[in-house]
Amino acid sequence: MTAPAPGQALRRALGAAFGGAMNLLEAPMRLAQAKLRGGRIGWVFVVPNLSVFGLFTFLPILIDLVYAATGGNQLFPAQRPYVGTANFRALLACRNYLDPNTCTRDLFWHGVYNTAEFVVLQVGFMVGLSLVTALALNRPGRGRGFFRAVFFYPVLLSPVVVALIWKWVLQRYGVLNALLSALGLAPHDWLLNATTAFFWSVFVSIWAHMGFYTLILLAGLQAIPRDVYEAAAMDATPPWRRFRRITLPLLMPSLLVVLVLALIRAVQIFDEVYVLTGGGPGTSTTFLVQFIYQTGFAQQVREYGMAAAASLLLAGVLMALTVLQLRLARPKS
C-alpha cells in the first residue's frame, strides 16, 4: 500500500466529513419523507430558505411600514408613538423643490439630487466604457486573458480597500499631485473641493465596478455567432455599419441587462464613496443610502422612522427598476 497524495487525502477527508454531516440528517429526512407523500417532501427542502427570507426580508418590509408610520427614537415598535404620514411629510416638505436648502430635511434632498446626478454620470460612463473595453477584449491576440483579469480585479476588492487605495493616490501629497507638479501643473486637494470630490466619487466607483459589466458584455459578444459576421463580410458591410446593424442589435439583450443592473446598484451607492469622502465636503457627495444610514444609526438621536420612510421611497425606485429588469430579461416571444 502506498500512501495517497496529500491533496487526495485532504479531498477524501473533506468528502468523509461532508458525507458524515449529511448522513446526520438522513434519519429525520426519512421520517419526513414517510409522513409527506408525493412531492410534498419538497416543502421540507424549501423551509430553511423560506424562513430566512421570511425573517430577514418579508417581515422587515412590514416592520419598515410600521417604523415609517411611527416616531420617536425607541427601537421596539411597541414603544413608538403613531405619527401617520408625518415622516413622509417631513421628508417631502420643501418650499422650492429645486433648492434642497429650502427643505425641512435638506440632507435628504441633497441625497436625492446627488444620487440622481451620480446615477446618470456613473451609469452612462461606466456602461459606455464597459462596452468599449469588451469590444477591445473581444479580439484575437495574446494576453487577452491577462487584460480581462486586470479589468476584473477591482471588482473583487472590498469597497473600503478601493476607497483607501484612491484616497492614498488623491491625498494632498499623493502621487497624482506629484505627477501634476512634475508636469508643472498646480496640485489640488481633490477630496476637499465639492466638484472634484464628486468627480472622483464617480470615477472610483466606475473603476471598481466596470470589470463586472465588461465581463457580461464580453460574454454577450462571444455568444454572437461567427457566421453572422462572415455573412456580413460576404456582403462587404463597412465596419461602422457592421457595428450598428449587427453587433449592437445582437448585443442589445446583454446591454439592457447591464444597464439595469448598473442602475439598481448605482441608486444604492454608499460604501466606497462613504469611505472615500465621508459624504463631504459639506453634503456634496452625500447619497440617499448614506442619509438612511446616518439618520438611522450614525447620529446622536437615531430617527428610525425617518430612515424607514426614506428606505420605502428608495424601495419604490428600486422596485420600478427591477420590474424593468424582469421585463427586459424575459425573452421576446
Partner: peptide, 27 residues
C-alpha cells in the same frame, strides 16, 4: 404552492439589504 414559493423568492430580488437596514437591526 411551489410556483408561489418561487415567485415569492424572485420577488425578494426587489428588496436589497439597504431597504431593510432598520428593521433587520431590530430583528
Amino acid at each position: 404552492g411551489r410556483d408561489a414559493v418561487f415567485a415569492l423568492m424572485l420577488a425578494t430580488l426587489m428588496v436589497p439589504p439597504t431597504i431593510v437596514l432598520v428593521p433587520n437591526f431590530l430583528i
